[in-house]
Write a protein that binds this DNA or RNA. Sequence first.
DNA 1: CGTATTTGTAACTATAATAGTTACGAATGC
DNA 2: GCATTCGTAACTATTATAGTTACAAATACG
Lengths: 157, 157
Amino acid sequence: MPGGSSRFAVAIHVLTLLARAGGDAPVKSDRVAASVNTNPVVIRRILCALAAAELVTSQSGAAGGSRLARRPERITLRDVYRAIEGGDAFRLHRRRPDRRCVVGANIEGVLGGVLDETNAAVERALARTTIADIVTRLQPCAPPARASARAATRAKG
Amino acid sequence: MPGGSSRFAVAIHVLTLLARAGGDAPVKSDRVAASVNTNPVVIRRILCALAAAELVTSQSGAAGGSRLARRPERITLRDVYRAIEGGDAFRLHRRRPDRRCVVGANIEGVLGGVLDETNAAVERALARTTIADIVTRLQPCAPPARASARAATRAKG
DNA sequence: CGTATTTGTAACTATAATAGTTACGAATGC
DNA sequence: GCATTCGTAACTATTATAGTTACAAATACG
């Protein structure tokens, strides 16, 4: 499945930035884009998906931007995965197999079951990590904005 | 990660066909391609990866074709996954994040750890199903060649 | 109010991965 | 030797993802 997207990784990056901003001021897509090293529209598209899943809220206008809709402890990577990928990591055949063949006629159904189970395992694994965990693991020495305004300013981006 | 490949699904399809052939006669890539509904070269490329992982053996020439290198009970979907995808379902950023930002500088490392764990969960889940299981689930009423030559002939393809 | 700013989204291009195709040398059974 | 089949290279086609430009709608603030 490589060849897949980097959206999941980017979405986690985005949420981590918002978590570190502490929810006091909304973060602009331009600022996020700079950290991720991509175009602001790409970021806004991802923020849009995250907003649909009620993980963030966004606001247009002069003092606009995005912030977390919940505390980072309450956002798991499973939530992000579902918001971004719709919960499907594996793909079936591109073209329909030959239905006159017993294997071709039934393999999609059988595989569907197996891949559903696999996906459930993925989700269980992802559910064990939260955005707060990611923030913590980032760098023990560089605390987020809330904890130390000076350190956060030095390390911002 | 959708947008990924269908090779994993096709590889399982291929191995299932070989398992049902029972290992008596080698199966030709043309015959497999017909069941999968694709080009024989696509199948041969996948067979090549499966041969490198020692899951099948192939033979050139007049009476050539491919057959399983082990009994289907001893080939797990994890083996197939590793042979085909190299064991990486998730992808990181496309372009390098901004290293001047604490998040950008460290997110790849942190995510790498999380995704490794996730991948391990995928593999554990896939290890629980074998090609023999797939064959069994295909259709209780249409047994493979070994069990009933007549039924297999009728249902072949 | 009017202006500056920022989101949301459409429309397009670019890049890259995957699949499909043609072709042919090498291997092999008959 | 000859027909057949694999392995593989080289190419095209298709699709997904990312990147870009542009602009209407929302909103803060003077």
